[in-house]
Design a protein around this nucleic acid. Sequence first.
DNA 1: TTGATAAACGGAGGGTGCCTCCGTATAAAG
DNA 2: CTTTATACGGAGGCACCCTCCGTTTATCAA
Lengths: 192, 192
Amino acid sequence: MNEQQRKPRSDGLRNRERLIEAAKEVLGQGGPQASLEAVARRAGVGIGTLYRHYPTREALFQAVYRHEVDQLIKLADELKNAADATEALRTWLHAGVALVATKRGMLGALAVVKTEASSSMYSELSAQMKLAVGQLLHRASSDGTLRTDINADDLLQTMYAFCYARQPEPGWEAQVLRLLDIFLDGLKLQET
Amino acid sequence: MNEQQRKPRSDGLRNRERLIEAAKEVLGQGGPQASLEAVARRAGVGIGTLYRHYPTREALFQAVYRHEVDQLIKLADELKNAADATEALRTWLHAGVALVATKRGMLGALAVVKTEASSSMYSELSAQMKLAVGQLLHRASSDGTLRTDINADDLLQTMYAFCYARQPEPGWEAQVLRLLDIFLDGLKLQET
DNA sequence: TTGATAAACGGAGGGTGCCTCCGTATAAAG
DNA sequence: CTTTATACGGAGGCACCCTCCGTTTATCAA
């Protein structure tokens, strides 16, 4: 039963990557009903290739979302040892807003379909996000530059709240970043 | 400048009606992205006719919604002189739930697009709903069978809350009616 | 009644997207 | 350099979107 497997083909892997990248852009802009053929075109692959790798729209959404969260986890890891812990936190949150910008398009679709597969994935990824921001927050508050009466959940909630409070207008992203910065300033302890 | 107008053609009026009726069914089932050609087919008219009367998907949605609310207003008027005021209120609220069932599919679309045209219509129709239920409520509470510490807004809010709390599952409508009935029972004053 | 004509009808047509299927190309293994 | 498991791409069939325009028909005036 131990069938020996070939190594996955390099072109296959490459195209998976390209599709995720293209989907992030196209779906981020055009919303959940954007054309999958446009995604394939942007990735420079045939439509058949897209469907082979991601048989359903939903599968593609999930892959994109998971990929984005992975990036954020990685980013948190890189920032773990940054000189300025508060600044690191700010950087990470800004990246988080960008994630929401991508996810924004997909959320509707996920909410409508609401497979138990998708919702379990959603909560799993949420937990990972919380851990990631928790690391950064802990360092920033334990070195005495940040208030200690706020936790990872509070921070993520705040970020989401800002994002969803002002979504429709174009330019909302910059606004949200501004508000988030102000909030972070409020978290800083004054060293008199 | 006082151009004399012909009377609107009877077939035109008839088809408008039919389209609304068909749209209510098709969109109520298939959600906001349902096929407009299916609507035209169901109404037994050509696709061109649909587009002439309702040039955009949004226009059709609005017309359906407005039509539904008009029905509710009319219903409230009919029930105004019913023997049992509380029962009349119950009947009306049940009809209201049916409206939400129709609207459900469209709400998403309206929320996404959010023209100021659509949102102003939305608030206008909300106000009308409030007036309608207000009539019925007033009569039921002033004849001493219902508590007086509840207003029209409370009642509509409650209805919406029940509807949106349990939407996705099939059979939700019956559940909501049951909960609503219980709530109404709670409003009744005991005549000891 | 009977034209005249404004109004409404319907569906063909051109464009796009969905998804499947399968002949062709190619990376990995021997 | 073969062999062969994998992956590729796009044609094809279907549905939908929306527009355009030749045809039909309801209204009105004579």
